[in-house]
């Protein structure tokens, strides 16, 4: 596992152990990668981050059409692997989680321990000055910077 912010490590390790998830990617809504586990290439992280953000944005638009406040969690079930996309509303803005898991665990367990992780992250999050809102064009720059940090380049 690699994390940008050390205080994320312990709760995320607990989540991985309890949920038996295979891949986890935690990003801010502006694309900064906070932590990742299981990805072997920065290209995969970049793609997953972009696609995950896109899916959440699309479903948010559908929720608007439905007059709903939004979907906190999206589940895609596959035959061999499944995917959960979930949001955590933090004082620093919305964080997005992408979790991939196989048949050694269940959707219910992954969601249960994701909720525990979200509570722990919110409880541990250091106080910080609110950063100015990021624009879409800074998404890729922030993503590149955090990927370089995560993959040690």
């Amino acid at each position: 596992m690699r994390t940008i912010e050390p205080w994320v490590t312990e709760p995320l390790e607990r989540f991985l152990q309890e949920s038996q998830a295979r891949l986890v990617l935690l990003t801010t809504s502006s694309g900064q990668v906070v932590a990742q586990h299981g990805f072997s290439r920065s290209l995969d992280v970049m793609a997953a981050s972009s696609l995950g953000a896109g899916i959440m944005a699309s479903t948010g638009a559908i929720a608007d059409l439905m007059g709903s406040s939004g979907f906190g969690t999206i589940v895609h079930e596959g035959t061999r692997q499944s995917l959960i996309l979930a949001a955590i509303d933090t004082p620093r803005g919305r964080w997005l989680g992408l979790v991939v898991f196989g048949r050694e665990t269940t959707v219910g367990l992954v969601q249960l321990f994701w909720n525990v992780l979200a509570r722990e992250l919110l409880a541990r999050m250091p106080a910080t000055v609110n950063a100015p809102p990021k624009r879409a064009e800074t998404f890729e720059r922030d993503l590149d910077a955090s990927l370089r940090s995560l993959f040690g380049r």
Partner: peptide
């Protein structure tokens, strides 16, 4: 059979 169906499984 399970591992052949899903080579990435921890099984």
């Amino acid at each position: 059979a399970a591992v052949a169906a899903d080579p990435s499984s921890l099984l």
